[in-house]
């Protein structure tokens, strides 16, 4: 809708001060869009696609070729420049798609689930591209199902659940909104778990959640009490195999915010802003 592809049902919105309904071409000249499915001509080669888009952006023939070559090298697609896009791998396609979106550096780039279905290496590569874009002064609005991605990339995160905005803020704000630091402890012997639960609950004065047969977690309001808790566990000969103290993960934030809904129905909307 903000990309001027859809008309709003109601209300109004402005992108860089231009109304999205009445000033579509002013908005279009500032933004760029990358959909979930590569919006490229699959029958054309990578280079032909980039030259075409550059020409449509107003570059002259010569400049368009130069710009296409520059982008192909930067996105490490120069080897595949003469291959038809339909023969590209998922990661190459996605990079190609982003390259096509930034032929003219946009002020605002929409990325719709840019890493869905990519292998970890390609994902990290796409993340690098997003960071470079932000460094270059582009506002990136990206949607993702992966909370780690939002945590890694976003300055501001908006959580959308079933079409409604349910939370917004920085990653740290969202984490803080659902509680303080969380202590995770894993035990060697599962029979110790219930005794450990009692000790930890009394020392840290909060309710423990059993996460599986060997481990539990608890929100810590007074981190200074943790050493004391651990020495008490040692006195009771309860052995820990691992422990960690940290902020809640965005996954926990997400599940807390959305209650018990299935994760498929959710979408995290996050925004990276210079």
């Amino acid at each position: 809708m903000l990309a001027t592809l859809l008309k709003p049902d109601g209300g109004s919105a402005k992108v860089f001060g231009h109304d999205i309904s009445s000033e579509t071409s002013a908005v279009r000249s500032r933004i760029s869009l990358t959909g979930q499915y590569a919006s490229l001509d699959e029958d054309l080669t990578g280079k032909e696609n980039l030259v075409m888009i550059s020409r449509l952006m107003g570059y002259s023939k010569k400049e368009a070729k130069k710009r296409a070559d520059e982008l192909l090298v930067a996105f490490r697609l120069d080897d595949a420049a003469k291959k038809q896009v339909k023969n590209y791998s998922g990661g190459m396609r996605r990079r190609m798609d982003i390259a096509a979106s930034i032929v003219v550096t946009p002020d605002l780039l929409f990325l719709d689930e840019p890493t869905t279905g990519l292998d970890p290496e390609s994902r990290i590569e796409v993340w690098g591209i997003v960071r470079s874009l932000v460094r270059a002064g582009t506002t990136v609005l990206l949607t993702t199902q992966y909370l780690e991605e939002a945590d890694q990339l976003a300055d501001r995160i908006a959580v959308i659940n079933q079409g409604k905005l349910i939370a917004e803020g920085t990653s740290a704000e969202l984490k803080a909104s659902i509680g303080r630091n969380t202590l995770h402890v894993q035990f060697v012997d599962e029979n110790d778990l219930s005794r450990a639960k009692q000790i930890i609950e009394s020392k840290l004065n909060n309710v423990v959640q059993i996460t599986d047969a060997h481990s539990l977690s608890i929100q810590v309001n007074q981190p200074s009490k943790i050493p004391e808790t651990f020495s008490e566990l040692a006195n009771e000969h309860i052995q820990m195999s691992s422990f960690s103290l940290g902020q809640p993960s965005l996954d926990e934030v997400f599940l807390t915010l959305t209650g018990s809904k299935t994760p498929d129905e959710e979408k995290i909307n996050d925004e990276t802003n210079e």
């Binding site: 952006m57 996105f75 490490r76 930034i102 550096t105 690098g128 270059a136 582009t138």
Partner: peptide
């Protein structure tokens, strides 16, 4: 080097007049 190249390519997309 690759990062620099990427950054340069991203930042250098000047806006020509519409065709």
């Amino acid at each position: 080097m690759n990062e620099e190249r990427l950054h340069h390519a991203i930042a250098s997309g000047k806006r020509p007049r519409r065709p």
